[in-house]
Amino acid sequence: MHWLTDPFQAEFMQRAFIAAIIIGVVAPVVGTWIVLRRMANLGDAMSHGTLAGVGLAYAAGINVLLGAIGAGLLMAVLLLLFSSNRRIGQETVITVLGTAFFAVGVVVISRIDTGVELSHFLFGRLLTVSWGDIWLNLALGGGTVLVVMLLFGELRLATFDHVQAEQVGVHVEMVQAVLVLLLSVVVVISLRAVGTVMSVTLLVTPAATARLLARTLKQMTLIGVFIGVSVGVVGLMISYHLDSAPGATIGLLAAAVFAVVFAATLPRRNKHHHRPLL
């Protein structure tokens, strides 16, 4: 029993659990759409790219979260500008932008004396999350969930069949832009807690696991949230007892859950693989 309750004794661990729960809810809510739109590559690029904003914010002496938001927004704008170029394709633009922004972050952080190691930005410091971080994440996360709830129908139409969605009056490009913006907000929320690298894990892996189990979008979102919160809380407890890095432990647990569900649902997926014509 102590194994379960010990981690909650210290206040810094209580804050860490709250931060993990917030990310566990918000990341799959957005991640559902990232997975369905096959934009995991964008999530990866966006999470790495925010390092540029973090590094520059440190250099300028301003809040790193503001820097991360700025980098996310700039990436989103550049992506929307360049992704219409059919000669190189959206995936290529995403990779070029993500690696370029990441490189800027690494160069800036390695050149200035931040007093913080690069690995802290990459993998987060869940145990040093402050109440200020939690309130900010709560506000940003609450806003993100609210926007997804309001746009749920539009997201569904634009994601399933963008051609028909445009025909019935959905502003598909606007929906896409909002989703990219929400993606950058999730990365910002995850930054202090699990870092830029691990944020994409929580964004994609619980939602991808839920995708294997769900029949409807609401099911997929709710299962994703359940998995996100569960791996956040359990992963943090495991990291406490094993004295391992919290962000990486949570990420590893999320991947393990995905692997188990993937294996367990393999027979069912094979059954539906061949669609009868009549």
Partner: peptide, 15 residues
């Protein structure tokens, strides 16, 4: 795609 037949057909009503 995780969408029901009812949700698919209802999409036409969005206009």
């Amino acid at each position: 795609f995780p969408i029901t037949v009812g949700e698919l057909v209802m999409a036409g009503r969005r206009r």
